[in-house]
Write a protein that binds this DNA or RNA. Structure first.
Length: 270
DNA sequence: CGTATTCCCTGCACGC
DNA sequence: TGCGTGCAGGGAATAC
């Protein structure tokens, strides 16, 4: 479900409830989500205060006094702050119980999410090798251009590679390519420096706008306070195949790239 | 190394 | 109503 804007929306929603609060314990109801949940996590976490709530790529990082708790929402995960002790439903897999009688609850029907422990002074292997944050100064069209030389992979696949740039998933890849006028199948290595700069701007703009609207609600994404995201109304191509392009009126098409639906405008995107 | 495919899991929309 | 099919926003393992 969540790409960068939804994860960032989630971060902003939970941060005020967590920062400075002390953890009482943690409850894992399944041994593993995407990866095993460390069995002694409750021992690691108990008594620690949350110093900060950060996001890196699509991971949330709860910075504690000693170490960090990493959470990933996968495709269907969501987080809410609830009264501690509220009965758990079938897909409520993990609770972080706070000393103030509230808890952070991770719900994840498809269980592609993750709960990981990063010891003090270490960078978790899952966070190693990640590309730049698209909203930071480390991200640039020139960087993309340089990295893409000689690459024959389709540009859409390339920008969804978390080693190239983080946080761009299927929805926002499609939207950014439309905004930049680039066909999703174009080989990454055959895009000019100038067009890479346009694409970098498009990625930034699309993500920032989506964050500003609280993310995209498809199916069931809700921010931790229960509000839906409103970016769906802004989508230009994602999920709109068969409908007219909002810019030129041509009928939007759909192709499949590595099993992922990719809609685009055959006239605006070359 | 780069690229394409497959799989993890459940829920849901759809067609029959 | 019930059942089968295909699809879903992520990402890693595997097979070339």
């Amino acid at each position: 479900m969540p790409e960068l804007p939804e994860v960032e929306t989630t971060r902003r929603g939970i941060e005020p409830h967590l920062r400075g609060r002390r953890i009482r314990t943690a409850i894992a109801r399944v041994p593993a989500l995407r990866w095993p949940i460390p069995p002694d996590l409750d021992v690691q976490l108990a008594g620690q205060a949350v110093a900060d709530v950060q996001r890196r790529a699509k991971y949330l990082r709860l910075v504690l006094e000693r170490g960090s708790l990493l959470l990933h929402l996968g495709m269907s995960g969501s987080l809410r702050v609830l009264p501690a002790g509220l009965a758990a439903g079938r897909h409520d897999h993990f609770d972080l119980v706070l000393a103030d009688e509230r808890m952070l609850r991770l719900t994840d029907p498809r269980r592609f999410g993750a709960v990981l422990w990063q010891p003090p002074g270490q960078v978790h292997p899952r966070l190693q090798g990640l590309g730049p944050e698209p909203l930071s100064d480390d991200f640039s069209g020139d960087g993309l251009w340089r990295q893409s030389r000689g690459r024959r992979a389709p540009v859409k696949t390339f920008i969804m590679d978390q080693r190239v740039v983080v946080g761009v998933g299927n929805i926002y890849a499609a939207e950014a390519l439309f905004a930049a006028g680039i066909h999703p199948l174009r080989a990454a290595g055959r895009i000019s420096r100038q067009r890479w700069q346009a694409l970098a701007v498009a990625i930034r703009t699309v993500l920032a706008e989506a964050i500003g609207r609280g993310g995209t609600t498809l199916r069931d994404f809700l921010s931790p306070d229960g509000a839906p995201g409103y970016f769906e109304q802004e989508l230009q191509v994602y999920g709109r195949q068969g409908q007219p392009c909002r810019r030129c009126g041509a009928e939007l098409r759909l192709l499949r790239l590595g099993g992922r639906a990719s809609s685009y405008c055959p006239r605006c995107q070359r």
